[in-house]
């Protein structure tokens, strides 16, 4: 594909670029295929078995595991709790994370921005279990929070948040807030100052600028943050189990029980795939609604 004077023709350059792209993508995608689809495929296969194929057991296929929600009606309550935890956590992360991201992107510069970013990613640097257990010390009756409150207001009733629904939400928001801030930051940083200047010169006030320009343009970040948070949160089991006490029963803990206590991998796998289907439906509906709302603009 070389022309007579030895330079690449445009077509040759294009072909070479395609090869380079393929070579750069191959390691990641072959790893993902191996690491994601192989185990997931095995689990999908398991979910149609009567018992996990360990030892010399014969394979018996059944659809029973997918009827779990019919056979065990209490699972509907559990699933609803999980979805509530997901909605609360995602909502609070958005409420706290979006303003923080906009402020970071538009109002800070240089060194102070670096320091603020460092504070946001700090939770990523600690082990999740350590994080959860330190929350137990803060939230329990007579814990750090209780103690601090009584220093300020000695006559206040004691605060014992540990082993309650709010405790689960606090732990999860702490763990997942960075995702929301980082994805929103990317969207907010990409907003051209000229739009905002134009709006101001036309007389728009700050709330109007936020509603008409900043929010719609940050929406992609908000949505990807929400997806990144909602999915792991409704499957979470560590935070509900340790912080939730009696109320910490979620789909995550029920699925964990199937794997760890009942040795019923097929049922655990089927419950996981059912949850996956529910999540996909929620996303399908919400993305349609969102694109109908904002797509026209």
């Amino acid at each position: 594909m070389r022309s007579e004077n030895g330079t690449l023709t445009p077509r040759g350059r294009l072909a070479r670029r395609e090869w380079t792209t393929a070579a750069l993508l191959a390691p990641a995608y072959s790893w993902l295929t191996l690491a994601v689809f192989l185990p997931l495929g095995a689990m999908l296969f398991f979910s149609f078995l009567k018992a996990a194929p360990f030892g010399a057991r014969p394979l018996q296929f059944t659809f029973d595991n997918y009827l779990a929600f019919v056979r065990r009606p209490y699972l509907i309550d559990v699933a609803w709790t999980s979805i509530q935890i997901g909605l609360w956590t995602t909502g609070l992360c958005a409420l706290v994370g979006l303003p923080a991201a906009i402020a970071l992107a538009r109002a800070t510069r240089g060194r102070s921005q670096q320091v603020l970013f460092l504070l946001i990613v700090l939770p990523f640097w600690t082990n999740g279990l350590v994080r959860v257990f330190s929350w137990t010390m803060v939230l329990r009756e007579g814990g750090v929070l209780d103690y601090a409150l009584h220093l300020v207001a000695p006559s206040a009733p004691s605060v014992a948040l540990l082993y309650s629904f709010p405790a689960i939400i606090i732990g999860l928001v702490h763990a997942y807030l960075p995702y929301m801030i980082l994805t929103c930051y990317l969207s907010a940083a990409a907003i051209d100052d000229a739009y905002i200047e134009a709006a101001r010169s036309l007389g728009a006030r700050t709330p109007m600028i936020f509603a008409k320009i900043v929010l719609p343009l940050s929406l992609p970040g908000l949505i990807s943050g929400a997806i990144l948070i909602f999915v792991p949160v409704i499957g979470s089991f560590m935070e509900p189990r340790i912080l939730g006490g009696r109320v910490g029963v979620t789909m995550g803990t029920v699925i964990e029980d199937q794997f760890v206590q009942a040795f019923n991998w097929p049922l655990g796998a089927a419950l996981s795939f059912t949850m996956l289907a529910v999540v996909l439906i929620i996303f399908g509906v919400s993305s349609r609604a969102l694109s109908a709302r904002f797509g026209a603009q």
């Binding site: 699972l75 559990v78 910490g248 029963v249 029980d257």
Partner: peptide, 11 residues
């Protein structure tokens, strides 16, 4: 199943 049902009731 008994224990999961009971736990769901507790929650």
């Amino acid at each position: 199943d008994v224990w999961d049902e009971v736990k769901a009731f507790y929650a």
